[in-house]
């Protein structure tokens, strides 16, 4: 290998002209590299596991006791446990996807991302894959502990379909996180407040602690949720597949189609927002300023 890092290039210009294969390999390495700290963090930082299981579990427990106080049917306990597990993914999307570029800017990493020879979508994809793996362990723990402790029984007749719906939910959910990552960065200092704003209000709109159909009493709100919020649509479909007596807002098939459409829209939106962000980064240079 010569001083240009190449076996064949004789000039810097030749070395800079990458083949398609090399571009793909570099981007795949970026995906793996960005996912790595999140996956390896599972074992390196056990205190994270404690808090990320404990906090959703405390919230789940509070809502379980509310239903117990109201003498609600037992399946509502299951709704809450499943909703609590899904909040782990939502929190991951908000704090470790949407707000991540803002933290990266504060730490000085963002400018390195812009100058590195890979696409920013690869960084976002790495963050999403790593976050998905990391959060899955937390969500499974919440479901496991919650189900055993509160005696939840599931009536899953189509486990593969349930797994497919879960995956279809994760794609738009993390796609939304990718889109928000760019937007949060553009909105600067509001990022922290926005992340806060995307918690309880989204738990309410997404029907995390009650069947989504209950939002029908709020008029057109249910339509807004079904067309914009993958957490709500996915959770409604998963509850229909996990609990026999659950009546969803729409049939599972229709909700799956909505999730597919959302996935496409959010990922294309993220790509466009990133392009605009990169344009701003080069034109104005303010995206490398801390605390702005």
């Amino acid at each position: 290998m010569n001083r240009y890092g190449s076996l064949t290039a004789r000039t810097a210009r030749e070395a800079a002209e990458w083949s398609t294969g090399r571009v793909i390999r570099a981007n795949l390495r970026a995906v793996v590299g960005r996912a790595y700290p999140r996956v390896i963090g599972l074992t390196r930082e056990p205190s994270w596991v404690f808090f990320e299981i404990l906090l959703p579990f405390l919230a789940v427990s509070a809502f379980v006791f509310v239903y117990r106080a109201l003498e609600a049917p037992e399946e509502f306990i299951g709704f809450v446990v499943l909703g609590g597990a899904m909040t782990a993914f939502w929190l991951n999307v908000v704090w470790m996807m949407a707000a991540q570029f803002y933290w990266e800017k504060d730490q000085g990493n963002l400018e390195l991302y812009f100058t590195a020879p890979m696409h920013l979508m690869s960084i976002l994809a790495g963050m999403a894959i790593g976050g998905l793996v990391m959060t899955s362990s937390r969500a499974l723990a919440v479901i496991g502990i919650g189900s055993v402790l509160y005696g939840v029984t599931y009536q899953i007749e189509q486990p593969l379909l349930l797994a497919l719906v879960f995956l279809l939910t994760m794609i738009p959910l993390y796609g939304m996180g990718m889109l928000f990552a760019s937007l949060f960065l553009l909105w600067g200092r509001e990022a922290f407040h926005l992340a806060q704003l995307l918690q309880e209000p989204i738990y309410f709109l997404g029907g995390v602690n009650f069947p989504l159909g209950a939002l029908r009493s709020f008029g057109p709100l249910i339509g807004v949720v079904m067309s914009t919020l993958p957490l709500g649509v996915g959770l409604d479909a998963m509850r229909q597949l996990a609990f026999r007596d659950m009546t969803g807002v729409l049939p599972v098939g229709v909700e799956m189609a909505i999730l597919v459409a959302m996935g496409i829209v959010f990922i294309i939106g993220a790509r466009l927002a990133l392009g605009y962000l990169e344009h701003l980064a080069r034109k104005e240079g303010r995206l490398t300023l801390r605390w702005q």
């Binding site: 109201l70 509502f76 407040h193 806060q196 704003l197 309880e200 209000p201 309410f204 069947p211 209950a214």
Partner: peptide, 24 residues
């Protein structure tokens, strides 16, 4: 915007409980 952030979170938390009670 700060006023919206301040108000939305506690209101949504209360609304979750309200809907839970109404449903049951």
């Amino acid at each position: 915007l700060f006023a919206i952030y301040t108000v939305a979170k506690p209101l949504a938390a209360a609304l979750i409980l309200v809907v839970m009670v109404q449903v049951i």
